[in-house]
Structure formats: structure tokens, C-alpha cells
Design a protein around this nucleic acid. Sequence first.
RNA 1: GCCGAUGUAGCUCAGUUGGUCAGAGCAGCUGAUUUGUAAUCAGCUGGUCGGGGGUUCGAAUCCCUCUAUCGGCUCCA
Length: 653
Amino acid sequence: MIKITLPDNSVREYESGVTGMDIAKSISHNLAKEVLSVSVNGETWDLTRPIKEDVSIKLYTWDDDEGKHAFWHSSSHLMAEALQELYPGVKFGIGPAIESGFYYDIDLGEDRVLTEADLSKIEAKMLELARAKSTYAREDISKEKALNFFNAKNEVYKTELISELTDGTITLYKHGNFTDLCKGPHLPGTEYIKSVKVTSLAGAYWRGDEKRKQLTRVYGISFPKQKLLEEYLMVLEEAKKRDHRKLGKELELFMFSSKVGMGLPIWLPKGAKLRERLENFLKKVQMKYGYEQVISPHIGQKELYVTSGHFEKYGKDSFQPITTPQEGEEFLLKPMNCPHHCEIYKFKPRSYRDLPIRLAEFGTVYRYEQSGELHGLTRVRGFTQDDAHIFCRPDQLKEEFIKVIDIVLYIFKTLSFKDYVAQISLRDPNNTTKYIGSDENWEKSERAIIEAAAEKGLKTTQVIGEAAFYGPKLDFMVKDAIGRKWQLGTIQVDYNLPERFNLEYIGSDDKPHRPVMIHRAPFGSMERFVAVLIEHTSGKFPLWLTPEQCVILPISEKFNDYAKKVLNFLNNYDIRSLIDERNEKIGRKIRDNELKRIPYLLIVGEKEAENNTIAVRKQGEGDKGVMTLQEFATFLTEEVRKETELLTNTEEP
RNA sequence: GCCGAUGUAGCUCAGUUGGUCAGAGCAGCUGAUUUGUAAUCAGCUGGUCGGGGGUUCGAAUCCCUCUAUCGGCUCCA
């Protein structure tokens, strides 16, 4: 007998060789029906794999990521089997479960391509194979045997993977007519998969290397119930309605013009006002934190970026230098503000007493992004960073870094961004050609970030190889409507540029010293931040930010004059409002302005004109009753004050 | 940049296999109506069907190419 410890710390005894499924059955019939995989001492196992010693287990269902993972991973094997049946000779790459669903990378050979018409065929075949109720069987074999097995099938991608594995034994999973190199875990059988959607096709380089062959990636998602698939598709539909590209157009916030150029956003009046308000908000916060605004030009001598290292790193993949006609001087559109700010630092000798110097600029930068990369406002070729560079003494670094974290968290809080990931991006020590600077500087920088984040109690994930070429970063990642992750706020420690630009300050010892730099942008870029803000709010911006706070709706043209009076009254309170003077019925005006996501609709007719009142309607909530002009102005001003309370009453940094 | 898809009026979309196929709704304009809480009615305007080539007696429809957009890959200072 062996002892099995359950998550509630209760211990049950079973025969050696008991499986996760046996245990589930012994607990409850329903659990046995729902369980998908099992954690055995922290490792996820198949439900059918025998347990032979005392362990702690946890049973995973569809409600657990681990359960879904096993489900989707098994689905990808099922899809592979379907592909093998439909397209004989297809070679398989990898086929993992992903955050929502799964994919399989396949090589169909030279003259075959999949098109979207094939997707439903694949679905149908998958469901057919699922109903065959094949079991997923695990098998450990020697590396040599595994190589022979896949060589015989000419599975070149699999043999490449196996030959790189260092484990003595290789694990295979087999179900139906399909056998795959795989660590598992898997569902007990294909019959668990009741509902399948093959969602899309894409090209994907083998092993993510653009120099290698591009395989066809088939994406899919599957569910244990048809209803769950329908719900998933509904959620996707809803998410599409929040897409900032759609809302940006509808709400007239920004546009693109292929005549101006792809990836070059154009801010329309309403979007520009919104952005301006965000900028002013941040300026106010930064002022409290001792930042000084500067303004630098949009281009800089090529030499400046040779000094900074940007030219060597990105020169080939940037907009190419612009040259002067007479002298042939070369200028680059600035891809970063830091070199300019380094020059500002060098404007005059700095004393240790002057530090930290915090130079802030809403700096517009231009970067050549590959055409396939462009995406609405989140990935563009020209954008404005809410940039600042802090030049400080080494002994001030941690304190300064923490203050920047405070600013980022404060902004996220003010704008209700709750769902973010703080990611520490470190360099890949095995790929030093990607980075500039000494190991010592890198170690110091990385330590500073890790310590500062820990000191703030920030929950972070660490990702190797994601650092900027000059230093490590603390990035704040936020998801968009359809779950894509974008980097917004970023804080970077940099010992390298001060060296390259030979920045100095005179210490208390009357000797020159090297300052440390912090690059930081709490929004990241105005474009990307506004994009994510649109998707998070689905265009219903907070009152203090929204382009138009209220719209006055006269019942008929007879009350237009009174409407103008209301408008003037509100204008005196800096309340942003407009009148819908169209010759339409009130129901129509309400509908149209609700759709424009204007927070307050103020209806004025005979009664209101007589009594100097307005009938107030809140966006999405309906009639709020009648108020006097004064009452409403006071109410709205108070609402805005509450929203921005944080802005004006921050604790002194 | 690579793979796949898409591109019809300002917007959302119809247009079977190439032959009155250039359409609808909304928006816009004009007029009527003067309206009380999510679409008043009528009339009108608007498109070399993304651009350019080609096949054909004939192309929105088929082919090539360019361009932009969408979903991914790679990249992201």
C-alpha cells in the first residue's frame, strides 16, 4: 500500500500502481468524469500512469490551466493524426498547447498548401477520430530506438529534436495511428474531445529561426462540451467590438492614411485632446517627482547614434540617413531620445549636488518596423514616448528606480489597469554579441532592478534574453482585448550610455565620476497606451479623460436657445460639452449619443427651460432625474475631482 | 521581410458557375415633421468594384503583378 496526500492534506491509502483516475473514482463519480490530468509531487501526469510510491497529488479539471493544457495538448495530437490521414507524407514539427488552444507545425512538402477551405475538413476528421475512442498510451524507449523509429518515417524535424535531447530515454505517446515524440501528459482517450474548431493558418519558421524553413502552423481550440466552444466564440466576438482599431475609427480618435504612410498614426481632434490630457496628467505627476521637461529635435546627426551604439545595432534596419544636399551630412530620424538627453546632460558641468537630474520629454521617435509587424496603434513606425532619463549617482540608483516604479503603479491605479505582469528582462549571458558593455555593469544593473522590484514587493517574472542591448529592463505588460500582451511601462538601468557619452559629475572629492542612467516611460508610448486604454474601457473613458463629457439634447428646435444657455453655463465650469442640434426625435438623439459613449446626456425641453434645469441621463445607465444647472455643474466637477483626486493629492515623493 | 487570407459608396455588407451586377442599409444633402428618454417619414447625391497589366466578343467575378489591410511567424532600441 502507498500513501496518497490530497490537497487538503488528507491521506488515503491505495495499492501501489494506482492511477490518478482510480483515485478520482474513489473520491467521487463526478470528479472522475471531470478530471483531466493529475499533479504528482508537482509534476503533471497522465491520469492513467501508475503511481508506485507515497506522493502528494492534485487532480486537475477543465477549471485548472493544467487540465486545459492536457486537453489541448491531446487535441494537437488528434489534429496531427487527422492531418496525417488527410495529407499522407506530411512531416510534423512541434504541436504544443498554448494559452487558448493548440497548434501543430507541419511541412506539407513542396507543392501542397493548406487554405482556409481545408480547416473544416480537418475539424470533421478530428471529430471522426475522436469518436474512435483511441487511448493515449505512453511509452519510454531508448534514444536510439526513437531515432530509428522516426528516421524510418522520414520525420526529419522529430529526429532533429531527439538528437538534441540528452535524456537516456525518450518518451513517446501513441493513439490511434499516430505516434509522437512527447513528454505528455495526455488525456486518457480521444473521446474526451467533443468539440473542435480549427481556427487559423499561419507560417511559422522551424524552431523560430527565420533562416530556416517556414512550416505551416495550424491553430485550433477544443472543448469538452459544444456549449463551451460557442461561449468561446461569443467572447471572441465581444472582444472584437473592443478592438481599438475599430473604436478609434468609430469614435474619431485616430486614423491612418496609406498616402501618409503605413504605420504612421494620425491623431484626430478628439484623440489629440484625449492624448493631451494624458500628457498633462503625467507632466503634473512628474513635476511632483522632480522631473524637468525638455524638448529635442526629431533628427540627430548619425554620429550621435554611432556613439550610443544604436547605429551599429539597428542602423541597417532603420529608416536610412537623410543627407544635406550641400555638405552631405547624415542625419537619422531619432529612434530614441536618450542620446539627445545625454547631450543635454553635457550642456554644463554637473556637481554631485545636482543629481539626480531628471529630464523628461514627450519625444516622438521613428523606427522602421517590418511591414508585417504593424498593428493599429500598438505597433507603429512613428510614436511618442513619454520618455525621461534620470542621471544619478550610483548610491541614488535604487531609490530613484523605486520612485519610478511608484509612478508606473500610480498611473496604472489611476487608470484602473489591474491586470498587468511585471517582467524583469535580463540579458542572455550566452549571446553576448547582442549586448554592449562590461559584464560588471550588467551584473550591477540587473541586481539593481531585481532588488528594487523586490523592495517594492512587486510580483515579477524574469525572462532571459529580453533585455535592451544597453541594459536590463523592468517592463509592465498588459493584455489587449483578444489577449495579446503588450509592453507598456518600462524602466531600464543603464551604465553603458554614460560611459559611451563620457558623462561625468564632480563628486564631493572634487574628482570626476560616472553617473548611472535610468531610462523610463510609464505609458511606454502614447499610441500604445491609448490603444490598450481604448480596449480596456471599450471607449468608455473616465470622465476626466473623455473627449466630450456631456451632450445637450434639445427636445425640439424650439429649445436650441436654452441649450446654448446650458452650454455656456457648463463651459464656465470647464465642462466639455456640445449640443446635438439635429432635427431628430429625442429617442434618436439619445441612441446616437449613447453609441458615441458620451458620459452624460442632458435633455432640455419646455419644463427644463422654464425651471433652469436639465434632465440628466448617464451613459449606459439611463435616466437620472432632473437637476438644476448649478447642481449638475457641482456634481460633475465633484465626479471629476474624485477621479483625479489621486492626481492632485499624491503623497509627496 | 516570410506564410495564409482579404480589399465593392464615408461606414457595414449583398453581388450563384464571367453576360442590364454596379446594389442595400446606415451616414450625408434637401424637404416635411417640432418631437419627452436607445433608430420620424419622403426624395436625392454618392463607387473607373484597391492600382496596373493580361485572358475573353464580354471581367467586380479568371490569371499575373503592385499596394494596403487582417491572422500568425520573425523582429521590437
